[in-house]
Structure formats: C-alpha cells, structure tokens
Computed example of a mutant assay.
Amino acid sequence: MHYITSKSILSSKNGMNLYRGCTHGCIYCDSRSEIYGMDHKFEDIAVKQNSIDLLKKELRKRPKAMIGTGAMTDPYVPLEKHLRYVRKSLELIYKYGFGFTCITKSDLILRDLELLEKINEKSRVVVQMTLTTADDELCSVLEPNVCPTSRRVEVLEILRDSGIPTVVWLCPILPYINDTEENINAILDYCIDNDVKGIFCHGMGLTLRDGNREYFYSKLDEHFPGLKEKYIEEYGNDYSIPSPNNDKLMGIFKKRTSEAGILNNSYDVFKYLQEFPQDSYQTKLII
C-alpha cells in the first residue's frame, strides 16, 4: 500500500472510494482495466490519506442522501482492519445524518454491524453483497483472497436478522465456468431465503477490456487449461462476453425473482438504493 492525497472524496452522486486497488484477487475484476488510468500496481492499494477530513467537510454542506462506496474498490479490503477508514467514515455518516450503502464481498463488514444498525435506525443502510458461485471450491479460484460464498451467505443472514436490507450482485457469470442452472438456482435460493430486496443481474456473462482481459486470460490458463482459446475463438476482443446459456438462465432469474417479490430490474434496484427517508430524518436527527 501507499498513501496519496486527494482533492475531493465525494462524487456528484455521493459515491466515494477511500482506496484504489484491491487485494481480493478476483480473476475477472473490471477495475483492472486500463481505461481507469491506474498508475500503480493493482495490488499496491492507494490509500487516500486525507479522505476522512475531506468527507467531514463535504458532509457538512451536502443535502442529506445515501453515501455509497465499493463501485471501484471493495471498501473492506484486508488493510481496512487496521486503517479503519471505512469505520471512521461510518462514524461521520452517522453523526451528520446521512444514509450508507456499499458493495462488498467481505465479512469484515460485520465488524461495523453495531454502527450500521445505528445509522439504519437514524436514516437508512443497504448492504450490497456479490455472489457469483454457490460452490466454495470454485469461489476460492474465482475470488481467492476473500471469504467464500458460504460465509457471505452467513453475512446476509446476520444482516437480515439485524433489520438491515440487502441487495445482491449476481455477476459476473463466466461462460463455461459458473453459467449453469444449478449455480443460478442455488444463488437464488440464498437470496430468497435471506429476504434480499433486489438483485443486480445485467445478463449472464462478463465484460473484458484491455487490462482486465489479459489478467483474466492468464488465470484461465492457470486454472482452466484450454478455455482461453475457446474464449478467443468465440468472442475475439469483444467487450461483452455473454454466456451461451444467457436466455435460459435469465428466464430462470426473472421468473424466480418475480415470484419471490425481489426487485430484478437494474433501474428499480438503483432507485431503491438511492432512496433516502427525508421525513424520518427530521424526526431522528440527534446531532
């Protein structure tokens, strides 16, 4: 890791990234793509050393809303255990009466459960968890340096029982690897059992760009010999890499989520994440 200084911390849509880079090692990660202009090794995480001070200043002057993180870097990377930047951010979000949402694959979020509950009582929290495979052994290949799917499901259970709503990212689904009916149905079982409010699924497949394509292919060679050549033959240098099972799997996804009352349209899920209880904020304000 190394420290950098940032000019701002919140985007115009109230998103933030406290870290840049990641050590989870997910073989498909789009954040490795050259388009994002990262000028350091992906695993050498850049820590925005002035982010907490910036966040405090920006929260003081912004209208109350949901603050989001995790779009580019999982906020609960291992170094968060001792740096505690997310924890400090949550303390400020609670103090100033904002809501919070994040995308993660890590059970480290449970360290902050009590604080998340306090924010949820005062305003609103939604935790987003990524699930790609129901098979822990395969998970250890696809996402080697983060807790397995079974543990993430336990996190969903704990959050459900704590009254904190959740959303699942059902992606990416890698052609010829995890694009099976058995896998999709198992993940949907987890989602239904744990009362998730919505599921992001932009289709069964993944995206590849310069930067992440090379890394992904190197991992295919390491763990799935011969599959890289199949990808190159079928998809060339395409950005969108759809599963040949997309239609069947999306049919299963739409049918089961609709029957369970789970939001399955990306627009509706994004809208759900952005909702901020303005009226309840006025009555819960304790600053």
Rank of each mutant, 00 (worst) to 15 (best):
P172V: 03
L206E: 10
I232T: 14
D107S: 13
I232P: 03
G163A: 04
D268W: 15
V126A: 08
M204P: 04
T104E: 02
Q278G: 06
E181S: 14
N245L: 10
K228S: 07
E121H: 10
K219D: 15
N246P: 03
E143W: 05
L138I: 02
D161N: 13
K95H: 15
I158V: 05
L92C: 02
L90M: 05
V196A: 08
K7D: 13
N246I: 01
E275Y: 15
Q282H: 13
L113W: 15
G211L: 01
D210A: 10
G236K: 03
P165G: 08
E143D: 13
K56G: 11
D221Q: 12
T69W: 05
I35T: 04
H82R: 13
E259P: 07
R152W: 15
C147W: 10
I252G: 08
R256M: 07
L79S: 06
T283A: 12
S243R: 13
E34H: 05
K81Q: 07
R213C: 07
I158G: 01
C29I: 09
I164H: 08
Q274L: 12
D221S: 02
Q278A: 11
Y281N: 08
Y239L: 06
P63M: 00
D44W: 10
N17P: 12
N14P: 09
D74E: 11
P63Q: 00
F200L: 06
N265M: 02
D135M: 11
K56F: 09
E58T: 14
K122R: 09
L113C: 06
E117Y: 07
T5G: 07
I103N: 02
S280I: 14
T257E: 01
Y235T: 09
S123Q: 14
D107M: 09
P225M: 04
I52E: 14
P148Q: 07
K284A: 11
T132E: 11
F224K: 10
I52P: 08
D189V: 07
A46V: 06
R256F: 04
N265P: 01
R160G: 02
C102I: 14
L138S: 05
D30W: 13
Q128T: 15
D44V: 03
S280A: 11
I187S: 03
R32C: 00
